[in-house]
Design a binder for these strands. Structure first.
Lengths: 354, 354
DNA sequence: CTTTAGCACTCAGGAAGAACGAGTGCTAAA
DNA sequence: TTTAGCACTCGTTCTTCCTGAGTGCTAAAG
């Protein structure tokens, strides 16, 4: 059953006042606040209805009303006005994202910190790690006779390198041979195709410098592994202490330690986010994880490129300023997508890397 | 004036009991605990003396005694038994350090997390960034006609790379030329020697592909910058909530937000640590930073190689299990030093990189 | 049928006081 | 110098009481 316009107006006023003050809202305060020209008694009747229908709750008989998860949900779906960030804010966010070394993990970590700082809630960011990557190319560069650099490139155009020191001397032709060998034997293989047998065959062909093969290949395996496995970054956990619902140290601690368990966080949050496109809001019991049953989560997903996605989000009490948080979050997520998506060329700024 | 043996024994018992229970210690409890065959009345007299001399404090008249910073100091200097970790523990720590991709920042970050987990206190790790690095060598690898990889190596043998995409085609000879140019013009230069003029001269020499010079060089500058600037990693801030002295949310929050300010932390802690060699303990007011006046800090330094050092440490209430913490910390610091110091060769594990 | 004023009722939170008890300092005897 | 004894202090805890915000219900007014 649809709620009357007046009920909606009242519900909205309750939610917004409660978001601001964290105090249960009484009928008298609402009479002024909601912009309705009715008395507090009338509002009391409406409040009673809303409470009965499950949109509001009463902490105790003689207190005002507080939104229930259902109430928040209605608010978020229908009542909330989408906030626009000012152009200036948007610009600031994007500039901040562009700073410093542009390594994938650093940018995402940075984005998480930024979101946390922007919203005053703990934030997290994670990257999906589903795709099976393959090796696209090896290069070996001789530094001096006792060391060389191995450069490994994957089919997602990520490039990593590593310096190796050797006990014996190594000549340029030997290195050439090794490079060709690596490129013929291991290019196009995924992580699990890099079997010990394959290694043995290649080592055999390598002759005297057979030991190097396994060194370089295991480095390549490390690279693939680290790129394929998803990573979790959390930031600003201490912000939960800012909010009165976590004055109770026990509660705060529970949530904090949950947030620092990378695995469970990833599991609980990756799933819901990756379905939809835009921002997604999970209110209290809508969360699958028990630990989050009385917190809310706002998520936004971003594209890393190559069809891979990541999720960035914040965690906070159900009394959260959803409008603001959602706006900021989606701005950052957009910024990230653009950052990874833009085809950078010499005259402008450079692009994608490690 | 030296304390009598008995007084020391009593002081030690007070400290150790208080470290365990976080409760002020009374004379009666001490009579049993301290292993002295004297009555509680005698102990009371001694306690009165110790209090007068400033080693102990009384929260209020009718409570037991609590160690003062001065008391802790004496305990740490003279009374504390150095803890040895079991071989097994040492082994576990070292194995944990060796896991995963061995990038400098990741290892140190990891070490911080480990220490925090090991000790149940918030931990931090930082690297000194004093040394002026120079570029040792450039390599450019052609991937296809529209992209190439730039590999930059510094004189500390750190190697970084980046993929560049181009709008126009690029031939192998052109790239060769570019490489030579870069290597003659920019090798051996520090960050501030890479002036715009130098760039302009080189660009001029580069002819048609002049735009690439600045791209690659600014990448090199990013590399130098990121290596020279010190980094701070914190972990396990939520652990402070474990300890009863931070039941007060306000206090906890203050400390937490201090810990998340990278800069101040670095400033406050880098100085004291880098003088000494071994572990260093700073008790309460011995800390320079105001925010740490009633917390203690245990520090250990480690070598990154190239004469550079880093510091790793934990922060906690003055009531801290100094013996345990110091032992674990120095084990991790040793592990780190070894990790960075070992000359790795093919038959064994590989070494230093990016 | 809806709105409003009035009123009795509820209940969390704070203040004030009482009882408790751990621990002290002091004194006098061993 | 050590010990037993004892009065005293003072934080903690438990009760009780009071206050006031906010409610639900009722009955009158629109």
């Amino acid at each position: 059953m649809e709620l009357s316009e007046r009920k909606k107006k009242i519900l909205r006023a309750v939610v917004e006042s409660y978001i601001q003050t964290a105090e249960p809202v009484g009928s008298k305060a609402l009479a002024q606040l909601a912009g309705l020209k009715v008395s507090s008694a009338t509002i009391r009747n409406e409040l009673a209805d809303l409470t009965e229908q499950g949109y509001l709750e009463q902490p105790h008989t003689s207190a005002g009303r507080v939104p229930s998860p259902k109430g928040y949900r209605l608010y978020v779906n229908e009542l909330m006005e989408e906030q626009r960030l000012s152009l200036e804010e948007t610009k600031q966010i994007n500039e901040a994202l562009h700073l410093k070394m542009r390594e994938l993990d650093k940018v995402i970590d940075q984005a998480g910190r930024m979101v946390s700082q922007l919203t005053n809630y703990p934030a997290f960011a994670l990257t999906e790690g589903a795709r099976r990557l393959t090796i696209k190319r090896f290069d070996l560069i001789l530094v001096d006779t006792a060391s060389f650099i191995a450069v490994v490139m994957t089919d997602s155009s990520v490039v990593k390198n590593k310096l190796f020191r050797l006990p014996a001397e190594l000549s340029e032709p030997q290195l050439q041979l090794l490079t060709t060998l690596l490129n013929t034997a291991f290019v196009g293989k995924t992580l699990d195709q890099l079997t010990p047998e394959l290694m043995r065959v290649a080592e055999h062909a390598a002759g005297s410098s057979y030991g190097l093969i396994s060194l370089v290949v295991s480095f390549a395996m490390e690279v693939l592994d680290s790129l394929e496995s998803s990573a979790v970054y959390t930031a600003g956990a201490s912000h939960i202490l800012d909010h009165p619902e976590y004055q109770d140290v026990g509660k705060a601690q529970k949530l904090m330690s949950y947030l620092s368990e990378d695995r469970s966080l990833a599991q609980a949050l990756a799933l819901p986010a990756l379905e939809g496109d835009d921002t997604k809001i999970l209110i209290g019991p809508e969360n699958v994880a028990d630990e989050l049953k009385d917190t809310s989560v706002v998520l936004a997903s971003y594209d890393i490129g190559d069809g891979m996605k990541g999720v960035i989000g914040v965690v906070g009490p159900t009394r959260m300023d959803y409008a603001k948080v959602a706006a900021k979050l989606s701005c950052v997520a957009d910024g990230l997508s653009k950052l990874f998506g833009q085809p950078e060329l010499p005259p402008s700024a450079p692009e994608k890397e490690e």
